[in-house]
Simulated assay, not measured.
Amino acid sequence: MARTGGDAASIADETALNAAYARASGIARRCFDAVAADAALAASAGAQVLLGKGEAASVAADRLARHLRERLALLGDILDA
């Protein structure tokens, strides 16, 4: 069942993702890998920008967190986990 949005309930747990990845086709794995790489890049870039910004970074941090939750939910959707 596909989930939408990026709330915590829509994010598959690590065990479910690992099992689903092991069963996934090559195409699904490549798509998953691309989205995972995008999420890692966003997390890294976002963390670098936000370090040392203090209170001024709260809006940007919220946007980054929302983006990462959406990417994680999409990873579960790709594998139907």
Rank of each mutant, 00 (worst) to 15 (best):
R66G: 00
A81V: 03
D33R: 10
A19Y: 09
V35F: 08
A73W: 00
I11H: 01
L64R: 01
R63F: 15
M1G: 10
R3N: 15
V49M: 07
R30G: 08
A45H: 06
S58N: 08
D77Y: 00
A16K: 03
A8N: 09
R3Y: 15
L68Y: 08
A2G: 09
A22V: 08
A47W: 05
K53F: 12
A57H: 11
A81Y: 01
A43R: 07
A40Q: 11
D13L: 01
A34E: 08
L68S: 02
A60P: 05
L50V: 14
A60G: 06
A57R: 03
H67W: 05
L79Q: 09
A37S: 14
L51E: 12
L74R: 04
A61L: 10
A24C: 06
R63P: 00
A12I: 05
R71V: 11
G46L: 05
D77M: 03
S44L: 14
F32T: 09
A22L: 12
Q48G: 14
Q48V: 12
E70H: 02
L50G: 07
G5R: 05
S25I: 13
N18R: 15
D7A: 13
A57Q: 01
N18P: 02
G26S: 06
A73P: 04
A9F: 06
D33K: 09
K53Y: 05
R29I: 11
L64K: 01
R3I: 10
I27W: 07
T15L: 11
L68G: 00
L72Q: 11
Q48L: 11
F32E: 04
R30W: 03
A43G: 14
A2L: 15
A36M: 14
A56W: 11
R69P: 00
E70Q: 12
G6N: 08
G46P: 06
C31H: 06
G26E: 14
A40P: 04
I78G: 00
G6P: 04
R23W: 08
A20C: 14
A40M: 09
L68D: 04
T4V: 15
D62A: 15
D80Q: 11
I78A: 00
L72K: 03
R69C: 12
A47P: 00
L74W: 01
E70R: 07
A20H: 03
A73G: 08
A37T: 10
A37C: 06
A9M: 10
